[in-house]
Design a protein around this nucleic acid. Structure first.
Lengths: 109, 109
DNA sequence: ACAACGTGCAACAATTCAGTTGCACGTTGT
DNA sequence: ACAACGTGCAACTGAATTGTTGCACGTTGT
């Protein structure tokens, strides 16, 4: 795996590794596109905090934004999620062999 | 989604959201089971740093350990990876509808 | 023109994270 | 018994993260 790819992947996982951002992703998935002010409504934290989270998601290419008059709409970008999925698939496919090696190492008492 | 589950999921993603830990996971996947000292060999950072990373992975239930004489072997635990995969699958499956909603919102100039 | 609204920027405080070093403890093989 | 080795614990530093607040700027509708 190239070093850059590894970094990108880690960024995606790190971006998802926060309950607030995970909730944002699910919210955006459900609704489609929303402004930061809109997303912050009824939330415990401030709009600015939400904006920072959105920027983290955008830096990981999980989210994109588009200006629309005086507001800015944020929406999900799917390509990186597909990559992350592919990675976890690869891990899972290597799984049985890895488990086998583990047993032969540990059970040789 | 229950709040506890959401937290667990975020912990899994956060644990994977670091290039060092990602490399550890792939290394363990390839080899099966290794000690912290072994994993630290030839690495730029110290054994203690590796141990801390392994503890993060273990807290997220991605890794388990087992004592074996004077050394401690670490190996992957697959169940949580399967859960993370399922989550990304769910995201991806909701994707087309989300994209449709996005377009209708943005393109209505 | 102007009031209202959403955004953008910057400074700041508190917390968490990554990594180091030093040393003590338990296990192993001679 | 003892030297060697792998581990465990604790203290510490520096950097990154998360969140706050205050204010200025652009856009919108009346």
């Amino acid at each position: 795996m190239s070093n850059g790819r590894e970094r990108e992947l880690a960024d995606v996982f790190a971006a998802l590794g926060d309950t607030t951002r995970l909730a944002l992703v699910m919210h955006l998935l459900a609704v489609g596109a929303l402004s930061a002010t809109n997303l912050a409504e009824g939330q415990a934290i401030s709009r600015q905090a939400i904006v920072k989270h959105l920027q983290v998601l955008e830096a990981a290419a999980l989210v994109m934004h588009q200006r629309r008059g005086k507001e800015v709409l944020y929406a999900l970008d799917g390509s990186r999620i597909a990559e992350a999925r592919a990675f976890l698939d690869a891990i899972s496919s290597g799984w049985d062999q890895a488990l086998g090696r583990l047993k032969s190492l540990v059970e040789s008492t």
